[in-house]
Amino acid sequence: MKVNVLKLEIDKIWDKKNTWIKKSDTIIKVVDHLENGYIRVSDCLNGKWVVNEWIKRAIIMFFFIKKMNTIELGPLEFYDKIPIKNKFREKGIRVVPHAIARYGAYISSGVVLMPSYVNIGAFIGKGTMIDTWATVGSCAQIGDRVHISGGVGIGGVLEPIQATPVIIENDVFIGSRCILVEGILIEKGSVLGANVVLTASTKIFDVTHDKSIEMKGIIPKYSVVIPGSYPKKFPSGTYYVPCAIIIGKRKESTDKKTSLNDALRTHNLVI
């Protein structure tokens, strides 16, 4: 079934919950397409990321039509609705025990999964490293040659349907224990130091100019970012709340590894 036909079918039955079971083949086909990378929850069109809401709808319907089932992996047992991804060898993906990826997440060849978790609807590009105890939430979009360091939490999003997932573009480095949620966009080549926390409401200050520039929701390409705080007045007094600080720019270089090392040394960055 062609993608445009799938979209029309999903949109048609979305508000008719009593028809979901009857249309289970269509819903399952959408998740199969996600699994194989034929479609993705968000696409970059003309430089702008667009959410494919109909795919998120299909995932929600998939949860509804699937039944709880016991999943046995050697001595391990799970009880869930969604199958676990498999056939990693054929797909050219290195998976270290106890990495888990759910069916419906697309993982490209050359990806390394250390003990970590990848949820349904996620997309992971070629050559990316998902390090130990990192979590990739539902529908998160991660580009090529990205390094997700240990303990990083990347938030998932299924509802509201129109909400943008966390998007990390190519050649990005995410330092240990960073938390990225609520549709944050990390543009290509950026480096986030350890413990940077970004939500839709987190203030981001670019301090590389004579006057600080404030923004939210996006880290511009090749930015070098560290965690910070700023004073905020409350009825009971002034307190410091978290923010992110852009302290420099990573050089756009064909040698990404050398560029990353230069950025870390130049800015004395902890990752």
Rank of each mutant, 00 (worst) to 15 (best):
L6N: 13
I10S: 09
D15P: 02
K16P: 00
K16S: 08
K17A: 09
K17C: 04
N18L: 13
N18K: 15
N18A: 13
W20S: 07
I21P: 00
I21H: 15
K23E: 15
T26M: 12
V30A: 07
D32H: 03
E35L: 02
Y38C: 03
Y38F: 08
G47H: 05
G47R: 11
V50R: 13
V51A: 03
W54R: 06
W54P: 12
I55F: 01
A58P: 02
I60L: 14
F62D: 13
F63W: 15
F63E: 14
F64I: 12
I65E: 12
K66H: 08
M68W: 10
M68F: 13
N69I: 00
I71E: 10
E72Y: 03
E77T: 15
D80T: 10
D80L: 07
I82G: 00
K85F: 07
N86P: 00
F88K: 03
E90A: 10
G92W: 00
G92T: 07
V95E: 06
P97H: 11
H98V: 04
A99G: 09
I100A: 11
R102H: 11
G104Q: 13
G104L: 14
G110V: 09
V111A: 10
L113C: 11
M114L: 15
I124F: 05
I124W: 08
T128W: 01
W133Q: 15
V136T: 05
A140G: 03
Q141C: 10
Q141G: 01
I142A: 13
D144C: 05
I148C: 09
G153Q: 14
G153H: 09
G153A: 11
G155F: 06
V157A: 06
E159R: 06
I161L: 14
I161D: 11
P165T: 08
D171T: 09
I174P: 00
I174H: 00
G175C: 07
L185T: 12
L185D: 01
I186D: 03
E187I: 02
E187N: 08
K188P: 09
V191Y: 06
L192W: 07
G193T: 08
G193Y: 10
A194I: 05
V196K: 05
V197C: 04
T199A: 01
D206E: 09
V207R: 04
T208E: 14
H209Q: 15
D210R: 14
K211H: 08
S212R: 09
S212Q: 11
M215C: 04
M215T: 14
K216H: 07
K221F: 03
Y222L: 04
V224M: 00
Y230W: 00
Y230N: 03
P231A: 08
F234S: 09
Y239L: 09
P242I: 04
P242N: 11
G248T: 12
K249C: 07
R250M: 06
T254R: 05
L260W: 12
N261T: 06
D262Y: 11
A263M: 02
A263T: 08
R265S: 13
I271S: 02
